[in-house]
């Protein structure tokens, strides 16, 4: 019996490795990221092309359902993970990622960084930033709410789509946003917002897809998301709703996985992340602000976007100390 099992398993695994065998002997740099980043219309295809010209290697973007999902994937796979780099975490989950001990220093020069916070981190390197905001269709919704307080008081059939704070950095960002704005009264605010939540999705792209299909009135996204509709679709009906409580900042980062067999290549990619070539691709593919000032600068569509007068941010260590408690509080408030 056991022999048959072993034979069978060996057979199945062997067939996988045959199917997986790659023809070229070039080194492969494997990057785990979230699905929207690696999509056909996302940054990954262009970044892959640009980096492969310089590195004599193959870049392989592998998607997880969500940003935090990419980190969990590495944890799940443990020492046998294929990931060399995890890309798409943010300052809020970076401390949790650091605590896993799965990441090593990136070795890149951070002097060029231009993000709205002081940055000095050996392990995680920013590649873009933006502010969380609710996006709405201005043709359907004439008077969007201007604060969480207003959102809370809207009628029950007003529906928003949000992301799960356990799997998605925007979802976590929203919990922290409300927390930073309302402090200990955050749970009360969530209880009032809860009836307006149509559904909680795993990742950003599920939520945005639902919103574009007309399933909800607003979706949690970024102040920079309207730039996509403006530039790529020449459509100005999608707008980000300015909230008087301020907007929470998200700085997205990448880190090198300890078990990488290509440390030199991974470090080269991290340095490439801050190049003008990489940073100029970001605004019109990931629809966020670049993490450095490039020679070309921002495309026109970005100039008319709402820039929050007040920026909210809870420092990473405080987030990590309270993340579980705050998420549990959120779960309870929305009915769990």
């Amino acid at each position: 019996m056991t022999r048959i099992t072993r034979l069978l398993v060996t057979f199945i695994l062997a067939s996988f490795s045959i199917a997986n065998a790659q023809a070229s002997d070039k080194p492969v740099l494997t990057i785990y990221t979230y699905d929207a980043f690696a999509a056909e219309w996302g940054p990954a295809p262009k970044l892959k092309e640009a980096f492969e010209k310089t590195c004599a290697c193959t870049v392989d973007f592998i998607t997880a359902d969500s940003s935090i999902g990419a980190l969990r994937k590495v944890q799940l796979e443990g020492a046998s993970t294929k990931a060399d780099i995890v890309l798409g975490l943010d300052t809020n989950i970076a401390e949790a990622a650091r605590a896993t001990g799965l990441f090593i220093p990136h070795g890149a020069d951070q002097a060029k960084l231009d993000v709205p916070m002081s940055w000095n981190d050996d392990t995680f390197l920013p590649f873009d930033y933006s502010y969380f905001a609710f996006v709405y269709n201005s043709e359907k919704l004439k008077t969007p709410p201007t604060s969480f307080a207003e959102l809370a008081n809207l009628p029950k059939d007003f529906k928003i789509v949000v992301q799960d704070p356990r799997s998605s950095t925007p979802g976590l960002g929203l919990v922290l946003w409300v927390r930073d704005a309302y402090g200990d009264k955050a749970a009360d605010m969530w209880k009032k917002i809860a009836p307006k939540i149509l559904t909680v999705t795993k990742g950003w792209s599920d939520a945005y897809g639902l919103f574009l299909k007309g399933e909800a009135d607003m979706v949690l996204s970024y102040t920079t998301s309207p730039a996509y509709h403006l530039i790529a679709e020449n459509d100005n009906k999608y707008k980000a709703a300015p909230f008087s409580e301020g907007h929470y900042l998200q700085v997205e980062v990448a880190g090198i996985v300890k078990s990488t067999k290509q440390p030199a290549l991974a470090k080269k990619f991290m340095q490439f992340m801050l190049s003008d070539e990489f940073q100029d691709i970001i605004p019109t593919t990931n629809w966020t602000y670049p993490a450095t000032k490039t020679a070309t600068g921002l495309p026109d569509g970005f100039k008319g976007l709402h820039v929050p007068a007040k920026t909210l941010l809870i420092d990473g260590k405080t987030v990590e100390e309270n993340r579980k408690g705050w998420i549990d509080e959120w779960l309870m408030a929305i009915g769990r």
Binding site: I68, G69, L71, R72, L76, D164, R166, S167, K202
Partner: peptide, 15 residues
Amino acid sequence: NTLEVAIYEAVKFDF
């Protein structure tokens, strides 16, 4: 959530 889905989420979302 049912317990089964909660188990799944505890592993896949929260690890």
